[in-house]
């Protein structure tokens, strides 16, 4: 599998990362070599092997439905560059 520069730009756009033309070219090279490396796995025949979710055969830990009263507003908003009356304030998002 080979990525092209359009795919790199699309991924960057979806991730909201601005790339210069130069950076995109570098990333194209890097990502293609990573893909090439991972593709070596295709040499193994996995037709009869179930996908593995984890190697420790542990099960999904579950918790009780207990609500903790945390009254978090001050702490949660502490790092926010802009806020108003307990709300985060962000640049206007349309829709």
């Amino acid at each position: 599998m080979k990525l092209d520069i359009n795919t790199i730009n699309k991924i960057a756009k979806l991730a909201r990362i601005r790339l210069s033309e130069e950076e995109a070219k570098d990333l194209l090279k890097d990502m293609n070599s990573i893909l090439d490396w991972v593709e070596q796995l295709n040499e193994v025949n996995t037709d009869s092997v179930e996908p593995l979710a984890n190697i420790s055969s542990s099960i999904l830990p579950q918790r009780k439905d207990e609500a903790k009263d945390i009254n978090s507003a001050d702490e949660i908003l502490k790092n926010s560059p802009d806020k108003l009356e307990g709300y985060f304030a962000v640049p206007k998002v349309v829709e």
């Binding site: 609500a67 903790k68 009263d69 945390i70 009254n71 978090s72 507003a73 949660i76 307990g86 709300y87």
Partner: peptide, 15 residues
């Protein structure tokens, strides 16, 4: 474990 109660003060139930 934050509460899911409706209508609380903004951002008061955010872990």
């Amino acid at each position: 474990s934050s509460s899911s109660t409706f209508g609380s003060k903004p951002n008061s139930q955010v872990s």
